[in-house]
């Protein structure tokens, strides 16, 4: 047996089919991400709400959709909704009748349940002093949330979000069980046609590997972008203390501060500030769940 049992001709010929599968996988991933982010913020707010009518259903949602394996969720959505007569005759059948939409729904439910913990953890990681300070400056709770907590939480939660996105992108391989032709399904089809156990699977694996690493690189760039004010601080540090002080005095270019300044400048009386505000805490919050 040769060292590498890969039929390169077969791999080359399967590239167009694989690319089609990859497009499906990508489409599902992007759709779930786009749907999942706003939904998860909403569910998190419900989960953190003081009203039990909101927080208990949200907690139950998280426990169920986080605890149940993705495979069962997909079966539940795909086979379960098909059994409901009212749904089958109703106008929503366009959605629940298609395997692709069922895959997106099942994955979104799972993704949102995981994201609730991520969003909650990063919102809680925002130092209480900042929230108190913005209340003292006369910002309403809503302004505090949109201009202070959310932008900072986004930066804190990025690592955990990347983890979750990578995990769930790999999780999309399961959608082939409800007849969606994604990358794994293409590989499986090719296996059944050729009975070559290695080539189709390894080719698909290479595609997944590239996809996951592209996501990693993208997140790395995003993290650099969101933390660009920190990078400047680091560059200044080795110089003289005077230079460091000058850098601290100049307003940080971080996203969270700019809108606040704009707001104070426009429709609020400027608050007399005695000492220069200390730089925002740049300590990374504790690691979130994988």
């Amino acid at each position: 047996m040769s060292a590498l049992p890969i039929d390169f001709a077969l791999a080359w010929d399967s590239l167009p089919q694989m690319a089609e599968g990859l497009v499906t996988t990508l489409l599902i991933t992007v759709l779930v991400l786009v749907l999942g982010l706003p939904l998860s913020v909403l569910v998190t707010l419900a989960r953190m709400s003081r009203s039990r009518i909101l927080s208990w259903p949200a907690a139950a949602f998280v426990v169920f959709f986080r605890g149940a394996p993705l495979l069962i969720l997909l079966y539940l959505v795909y086979y379960g909704f098909g059994q409901i007569e009212a749904l089958r005759d109703g106008p929503l059948w366009v959605i629940f009748g298609s395997a692709f939409a069922c895959a997106v729904i099942g994955l979104t439910l799972n993704h949102v349940a995981y994201m609730v913990e991520v969003v909650r953890g990063s919102l809680n990681a925002v130092p209480a002093g900042l929230v108190e300070a913005s209340a003292a400056l006369g910002l309403t709770p809503r302004e505090t949330f949109t201009y202070i907590r959310l932008p900072l939480a986004m930066r804190y939660g990025l690592a955990a979000y990347q983890n979750e996105v990578v995990m769930f992108t790999k999780g999309t391989a399961v959608v082939s069980v409800i007849t969606v032709i994604d990358l794994t399904a293409v590989a499986n089809e090719l296996f059944e046609e050729t009975y070559d156990p290695f080539t189709p699977m390894l080719t698909a694996a290479a595609f997944y590997w590239c996809l996951v690493n592209a996501i990693r690189l993208g997140f790395g760039a995003l993290e650099n972008h969101l933390n660009r004010h920190q990078r400047r601080e680091q560059a200044v540090k080795p110089t003289t203390p005077a230079g460091a002080a000058a850098a601290a005095a100049e307003p940080p270019a971080g996203a969270p501060v700019a809108p606040l300044r704009r707001m104070i400048g426009s429709d609020r009386r400027p608050v007399p500030v005695k000492a220069a505000a200390p730089a925002l805490s740049t300590a990374t919050p504790k690691e979130h769940a994988l």
Binding site: T184, A205, Y208
Partner: peptide, 21 residues
């Protein structure tokens, strides 16, 4: 890098189909 970039489902299939070979 390979393990963290490839879905576990694919590895299960690979070992099941190609295991005896």
């Amino acid at each position: 890098s390979i393990i963290m970039g490839v879905p576990s489902l694919l590895i299960i299939f690979l070992l099941y189909y190609g295991g005896s070979a």
